[in-house]
Amino acid sequence: MINAKFWQPYYQKWLNKRIPKTNKIKLSHRSVFIVPNAAGGLYILLLVLMLITSINYQNNLLFGLTFWLFSLSLVAMILTFRNLAGLTVIAGKAQPCFVGEKSALPVLFETSSSRHQGIAFGYAKDISSYFDGNGETIQKFLYYSPATRGYFDVKRMRVETRFPLGLFTAWSWLKLDFSALAYPQPEFVPFIFSEGEGEEHTEHAQLTVSGDQDFYGLREYQPGDSMRQIAWKQLAKGRGLVSKEFEQPQANSCMFEWDSLAPLPVEVRLSRLCGWVLQAHEKSWQYGLKLPGVQIPLDYGLKHKEQCLTALALFNGKGA
């Protein structure tokens, strides 16, 4: 038997061609579909009953009302279409997240100069958010939890409206390109230190970071400074956010290596590396990353962490 499942791939293929993935789309006849819904069906039944009544009673006013309501539905169809067409949907700047987390994807609805009323959007099974727009740009969120690392692959989003009369549903399936990254799900395991190779690896003497580092001085807070670096006492005294700087902690630098996790499967290795990167960052260590084909030198800070996580997220298994 040929069922919906059979057609699904063909339908998706057709849809991908008709409404390709994009980060900004203005809805038009290409992307908006419209059909009468259940209420529309009920309305047709009403019209048929009214027509039969007017014919049997030969009542001109009833004829008039019947025809008027019919014409009304035609106008409503046009207006329902118009209500969605012209709406511009933009994928906002999404924050990267880890696999297993939930990320809020900002979706911007640019309602241009015209009014768009009673617009609902969401994933196929969950269309619950409604808004009206009168010419402004409206920001709404779509929640997404990535199942795999790499660039977000957000399911098609449905934007629909029944305005003004609810007899027709106009909708569109949008594939928005948020170009944000899902990092591997971090797995927190103790560090593994490889033997032998020398200073650029690790010195395992001071694994536990503690207060016995040499205090060097205070400086302005910089994004990426870890919580323990912040001089809370200074903050409490009302001197603003200030970070403690320690003497270059020679010992606390390490290089995380792909090969050190040798027999494990790819994703597990990435998860552990991810966990290490996070821990090292948290401890304000200097660290680097060595993947087949990718090498990130020792460094620290927020930007560095992002660079490492990005490399892990986009790792494709072979050397570049």
Binding site: N60, G64, F67, W68, F70, L74
Partner: peptide, 16 residues
């Protein structure tokens, strides 16, 4: 809505 649907209604009223 009522005004916009008036012309079509008149056509149907007279010609149906």
């Amino acid at each position: 809505l009522m005004l916009l649907s008036l012309p079509m209604m008149l056509v149907l009223y007279f010609l149906f």
